[in-house]
Computed example of a mutant assay.
Amino acid sequence: MALGATIYKAEINIADNDRAYYGSHAVTVARHPSETEERLMIRILAYALYENGDERLTFTRGLSEVDEPDLWRKDLTGTILQWIETGLPDDRRLLKACGRAGQVVVLAYGRNVAIWWASMASKLERARNLKVYVLPVESTQKLAALADRNMILHFNRQDGTVWVSSDKAEAEIEIQALN
């Protein structure tokens, strides 16, 4: 018998001073059986970083579907405006995404980001609609500690740094651009 997804509910309060966006959102996120809480929380972080109030940014089936990113924003015609990946995707996947979407964003994390980027940078330099960011390992581990099946999260972003807090703890994440 296959394991089912675990459902997490989050109330997300965003104060993004870099984009002048302020809003609250209730989201339900399914955690795939093979997904870590760290990856789940990075997907929620991505939502907080890119939600702009148009309510078109959605979580996809993620790990369950190879042709979908972790999040995407589509217009009313179904055109993919924004494709958001977390982790260390391969170059073919990213180049294909760049052909399908107006903007592709990668939030890279983990101990092997430097090795991954060293092998990817030259392969991806022609992708003009791709932005790659790195999240420090210590920060993403603190972010993972905030995970709870029902959570209230506060995201405050200023000058490229995000402060995330809940009733359990807090995490500070410096987002660094790689390209």
Rank of each mutant, 00 (worst) to 15 (best):
A114G: 05
K131M: 13
A114H: 03
I115E: 10
K142C: 12
M120G: 09
A121E: 12
V134N: 11
V132N: 02
N112K: 15
R126I: 13
A114N: 10
V113H: 10
L124T: 04
N112V: 04
A118H: 01
T140N: 05
A114E: 07
N112E: 13
L135N: 05
N129E: 00
S119C: 14
S122T: 10
V113E: 12
R111I: 12
L130V: 01
W116R: 08
S119A: 15
V134A: 12
M120E: 04
A121W: 11
W117I: 01
A127P: 04
L130F: 00
N129F: 00
W116I: 06
S139L: 09
P136D: 07
N112T: 13
V113P: 10
V137T: 07
Y133R: 03
L135K: 12
L135A: 13
L130K: 00
R128I: 09
V132Y: 02
V113K: 08
Q141Y: 13
S119R: 15
V132C: 02
A121V: 13
L130H: 00
A121Y: 11
N112H: 14
A127L: 03
K123H: 11
W117Q: 03
V137S: 08
L143F: 08
E138C: 07
W117C: 10
L135I: 11
N129D: 01
W117P: 02
L130T: 00
R128E: 06
K131C: 11
E125I: 15
R111S: 14
V132M: 01
W116A: 01
I115M: 09
W116P: 03
V137I: 09
N112L: 10
L124I: 02
V132A: 00
K142A: 11
A114V: 04
W116D: 07
V132H: 01
L143V: 05
S119D: 14
A114D: 06
R128V: 06
L130P: 00
Y133D: 04
L143A: 04
S122I: 04
L124W: 00
S122E: 08
R126E: 13
R111Q: 15
K123N: 09
R111D: 10
Y133F: 10
K123M: 09
